[in-house]
Design a protein around this nucleic acid. Structure first.
Length: 418
RNA sequence: GGGGGCGUGCUUGAGUGGUCAAAAAGGGCAGACUGUAAAUCUGUUGGCAAUGCCUACGGUGGUUCAAAUCCAUCCGCCCCCA
């Protein structure tokens, strides 16, 4: 039987780990409970959260019990690690609403119950740490938990270090983040026997704080495992594009755009991404990753399809793939999955100035940008370039009552008139 | 509590009364070359009814023909001393 730890390691999920042999052994010998925290500051997770999600999924497949924590309590503080400035504090209702939609996204990767749907017995749990953090009493907390933390130790941690060195400084509020995260681990250990916390490598010191808190108070050894922080080969943060994050919410990033994000992966990242973001067996991952030159596009197509299937389901992945092939392969007309807007027919009969059209459908964020796009030769309708800014688009250009616009090489948009 | 300093566009960061929609770099976008990749080169990068107008250098008010630049005040932040 293949040990999950080996699987995680082989696929590149392990950056740092407390006592590797112990963790490997623990995971092999019995079913354990593990947890990962998610940040509810946005209403959706983005591609950057996929590493923890996939790791959780691998562990659950191996029979271990996941707990996903939504940081409803800790978010009220703001994690200082890797943030250049203090995070904006969100109202509680907002955080709760975000948590609810994040749960839906988590469900696509791991099976979870909430405290209220406990009966489902999905084998995993979804909790909000506000539940135990908010009722805490300050004095009690300081006496019971705070006493175990040494400030001189804390400020040596990289996470605080950076903030201390920078001009922005660090507020006392944020300084407490680590204590609360450590307390989460303690709480989960006490309530659910949770023995392992996973997180991004920037969480290492926070996780260790929890490990040592449990050891001091409970005399028990629990474990920490961190994932490497992903940047693409070109140095960009994983899951971010110029337009912002790549979201898992189909309303914020359509499956087509999601698919396109992956297919545009840098050659150098393909193999690693296949290992992280798909469940394909490693020999297949290596085969695809080994493809060279133009052939590596096949690997990117597999990556894009598999990743989209996990996030949005097979039907959406099929559609995205078809639309992508139609747009870039030059064949077929299966374009429904492409970003589409609808305009009233009268508009096209009246004639729409081209600048207005590109701006209105979102291919240009202002009319000036549309103007630039057109002047620089980046505006296409049905693959025909238009360079004159006072062009008026009328009904003679319609194909099946629709226009296919293109901005630059890769951004497509369909406009349907009805 | 005392003293010193800072706040500029997506980011870093110059600018200390007009020549400033604001240097430079990074990032972004477009074009060329390509494989929907990378690298490279070129152009471009506040908005608009566009040889002009509007908005913008933390907020507000003021001085001036003219303010990112000077003054007052407020807000936020940093450093040193207590």
């Amino acid at each position: 039987m293949n040990n999950v730890f080996d699987t995680l390691k082989e696929r590149g999920f392990v950056q740092q780990c407390t006592h590797e042999e112990n963790v490997a052994q623990l995971l092999a010998e019995k079913q354990i409970t593990y947890y990962v925290g998610f940040d509810p500051t946005a209403e959706s997770l983005h591609a950057g959260s996929l590493v923890p999600l996939m790791a959780m999924a691998h562990l659950q497949r191996a029979g271990h019990q996941p707990i996903a924590i939504i940081g409803g309590g800790t978010t009220m503080i703001g994690d200082p690690s890797d943030k250049t400035e203090m995070r904006q504090l969100l109202p509680r209702e907002q955080i709760a609403a975000n948590g609810a939609s994040i749960l839906e996204q988590l469900q696509r990767y791991v099976k979870l119950d909430t405290p209220t749907t406990h009966a489902n017995n999905a084998g995993g749990l979804f909790l909000d740490n506000a539940e135990w953090l908010l009722p805490l009493n300050y004095i009690d907390f300081l006496r019971d938990i705070g006493r175990h933390f040494r400030v001189n130790e804390m400020i040596r941690a990289e996470a605080y270090r950076q903030r201390l060195d920078r001009e922005e400084g660090l507020s006392f509020l944020e300084f407490n983040y680590q204590l609360l995260q450590a307390y989460d681990f303690l709480h989960l250990y006490q309530q659910y026997g949770c023995a392992l916390q996973l997180g991004g490598d920037d969480q290492w010191s926070n996780i260790l704080a929890g490990v040592s808190l449990v050891r001091r108070l409970e005399g028990e050894r629990v474990h920490a495992l961190t994932f490497p922080l992903l940047t693409t080969a070109s140095g960009a943060k994983m899951g971010k594009t110029a337009d912002g994050a790549v979201w898992l919410d189909a309303n914020k990033t359509s499956p087509y755009e999601f698919y396109q994000y992956w297919i545009n992966t840098d050659d150098r990242d393909v193999e690693q991404f296949l290992a992280y973001f798909t469940f394909l067996p490693m020999d297949e991952v290596q085969r695809l990753g080994g493809l060279e030159h133009a052939a590596i596009r096949e690997a990117k197509a597999v990556l894009a399809y598999e990743a989209t299937k996990l996030a949005h389901g097979k039907a959406a992945a099929d559609k995205a793939q078809a639309a992508s092939r139609a747009a870039f392969g030059g064949s077929g007309q299966e374009l429904e999955a492409m970003p589409t807007s609808t305009l009233p027919t009268e508009r096209i009969h009246a004639g729409i100035p081209i600048m207005e059209l590109f701006h209105e459908v979102g291919l240009a964020s202002s009319r000036s940008e549309a103007r630039r796009l057109i002047q620089q030769g980046g505006a296409y309708i049905h693959e025909k370039q238009y360079r004159t800014i006072n062009t008026v688009v009328d009904a003679t250009l319609l194909e099946n009552n629709a226009l296919r616009l293109r901005a630059g090489k890769k951004r497509y948009h369909r406009v349907v008139f009805e």
